[in-house]
Structures are given as structure tokens and as C-alpha cells.
């Protein structure tokens, strides 16, 4: 394997007429599963199309393993792609589709590779049936199988979990984890945030075509810790004394009472966590539970989205 990163974007923009789909995006992605996160229309699909060489950047350069895919098709020997929508040829059987793709990727024994890939996605029992008669979820898995058959080093998956039921989702996520652990580069796009959180330890976050965050999910959370946070506290009694002290001390900006729990909004979590025990003692309040609210990717994303509003379109 060469030293070049699996995917490298250098100042990539892609516009369609007046619409900017991807705006000056630069990043490099190495082994492991990376989530490509963004709302509908944030530029996820365009980014993946650029990665896969299905379209050219209007500015900048896209490189896969150090080369531009559109000029060097040979690099596709190491790449598997699951496009969004686009079911495979309906008149072929699942086996034929996967075998054909394996053959086109110059796999030595396409039939055996197809068998393996179909087994991986759990379609071995319907391999002889025509794709045209498949359900959406089955087609989705055929697409995944054709991308896996040639054992690629880089996998590009556009919304691979669309149309799958929860059990199938779990299976596919397990497959992706395994591929990531094997040292392959896997890029998965999705707008369903908790899914990405389950699939990918690292993410690229796109908002209106701009790359607004990248890296480990937890690291991103750290980087933006200056954002206002909400902490839920369950306290004995009614806790109003504690709340009053926190507000007086300027530790929190807002309080909300709710069925025995309180939600504090604070701009400085560090200070809050230092002040809380002391104030609890002085106000003689029993604190039963302290938990952050909305500290998952969803709220991080919502915050980033809010902050980046006005950028791009």
C-alpha cells in the first residue's frame, strides 16, 4: 500500500450553476470508519461522488491513494462504491451482479468472490433471484456485496443503511466495523445521526457544503465546549436553594424546574462542575444525579449547524 492517504481533498469546491454544493473543502482520511454527516443537501452525496470520481471538482483536487480517480481508473481496483439510490441492473440475479462487478475489478475467481460477498451481506440464499424482484433492503445489500467482492482498501458508501430494518442495520454496521478494524478506509454518509455515531468513531461534518468539523466525535465535542450546555440535576427536596445559589454565583445562565429535576444552562461547564459540589454543601442539598443533556452527536451537530448558518447558500 502506498503512503498516500486513502482520500485527500485539497481545496475542493463543486458548484452547479449558482448552487454551491461543496465549498473549499480540504481533508484527508485514513484507515478506519469515517462518518460523513450532514443534513439533506449539505453536500454529502456530492462529496462522495467526488471521491468516487463520478464528477469532477470545479476547483481543487480530489485524490484517492494519491491519484485523481477520473484520470487513473486503475485505482478503482482498490475501491468499492455503494451509490445512493441506483439499484443494480434489475434483469440480472444478485449472483450475476456481484460476479460481474468482481470480474470488472479483475478478481481472479469472480464466482467465489461473489459467493463470499453475498454471504457477508446475508443474501446467499436468494443469490439466484433477479434483483428486479428484490425489496429495497435486499437491493441495498446487493449493492454492498458488489462493493465488497473485490476486497477493496477503500469503501465509499452513500446512505448504505437506507431501507434496511433494524436487524439488518446491526449486521451491516458490524460488517463495517470489521472492515474498519482490518485497516480499510470506510466512508459512510448518513443524515441519521445516531447511526453515524454507532458506525463511525470519526466524522466529517458538512453544513451547506462547508466542512465545519472533522475528527473523533468526542474530540469535536471537546473543541466546541465553549458552546452553551445543559446539565440536568436531580436533587433531594425541591433544590431551589441550590438553583438560587448557582444563579447568584453567575455559574448558570438559566434554570428550568421540572418534576423534581432541574435543567441548568451554562456557558462554562468546567466552572459549573467545580461550583456544584461546594454550593450543594452550603445550601445543604442532596444531589442525586448530574447528567449532561444533549451531549450526543445530534446536539453537537445542531450547534455546528446553527453556528455555520449563513455560510454558503
Amino acid at each position: 500500500m502506498s503512503d498516500a492517504p486513502a482520500i485527500e481533498f485539497a481545496g475542493v469546491s463543486r458548484w452547479y450553476g449558482d448552487t454551491v454544493a461543496v465549498a473549499d473543502v480540504s481533508f484527508a482520511v485514513g484507515p478506519g470508519v469515517t462518518g460523513l454527516l450532514g443534513h439533506n443537501g449539505a453536500g454529502k452525496s456530492t462529496t462522495l461522488k467526488l471521491c468516487a470520481g463520478f464528477t469532477s471538482p470545479s476547483a481543487g483536487a480530489v485524490r484517492i491513494f494519491g491519484v485523481e480517480p477520473r484520470r487513473n481508473p486503475a485505482v478503482y481496483e482498490r475501491v468499492g462504491v455503494v451509490p445512493d439510490q441506483s439499484p443494480p441492473w434489475p434483469f440480472l440475479t444478485a449472483q450475476e451482479v456481484v460476479e460481474l462487478c468482481a470480474r470488472l475489478h479483475r478478481v481472479a475467481d469472480p464466482a467465489a468472490a461473489a459467493d463470499r460477498a453475498l454471504e457477508t451481506v446475508g443474501l446467499d440464499d436468494v443469490a439466484g433471484r433477479k434483483v428486479g424482484g428484490f425489496s429495497h433492503g435486499m437491493r441495498q445489500r446487493v449493492k454492498l456485496a458488489q462493493a465488497l467482492a473485490h476486497d477493496p482498501d477503500l469503501l465509499l458508501l452513500d446512505e448504505p443503511l437506507n431501507g434496511l430494518d433494524p436487524a439488518q442495520r446491526r449486521e451491516i454496521i458490524a460488517v463495517l466495523h470489521r472492515l474498519g478494524d482490518e485497516g480499510r478506509t470506510v466512508i459512510v454518509s448518513s443524515h441519521v445521526l445516531h447511526e453515524v455515531e454507532r458506525m463511525a468513531p470519526q466524522v466529517l461534518v458538512l453544513v451547506s457544503g462547508h466542512l465545519v468539523a472533522e475528527g473523533q466525535t468526542s474530540a469535536i465535542r471537546q473543541l466546541i465546549s465553549e458552546r452553551p450546555r445543559t446539565v440536568r440535576v436531580a436533587a433531594g427536596g425541591d433544590g431551589r436553594a441550590l438553583a438560587g445559589a448557582l444563579v447568584d454565583g453567575g455559574v448558570v445562565d438559566a434554570v428550568r424546574f421540572d418534576d423534581g429535576t432541574m435543567e441548568f444552562e451554562t456557558g462554562d461547564v468546567e466552572r459549573f462542575s467545580r461550583a456544584l459540589p461546594a454550593l450543594a454543601r452550603t445550601t445543604d442539598t442532596l444531589v442525586r444525579r448530574v447528567e449532561p443533556v444533549g451531549d450526543d452527536l445530534e446536539s453537537v451537530y445542531a450547534y455546528l449547524h446553527e453556528r455555520a448558518r449563513g455560510a454558503g447558500r
Binding site: 468516487a52 470520481g53 481508473p73 468499492g80 462504491v81 451509490p83 441506483s86 441492473w89 451482479v97 470488472l104
Partner: peptide
């Protein structure tokens, strides 16, 4: 139109 061209293009075959 059907998007199946993606499966052909994403291969090492010469254009």
C-alpha cells in the same frame, strides 16, 4: 438515467 453506470465507471476498466 438509472444510475447503473456508476457500477461500470467505478472499475479499473479503461474509459
Amino acid at each position: 438515467e438509472d444510475g447503473t453506470i456508476y457500477y461500470l465507471v467505478a472499475t479499473p476498466q479503461s474509459r
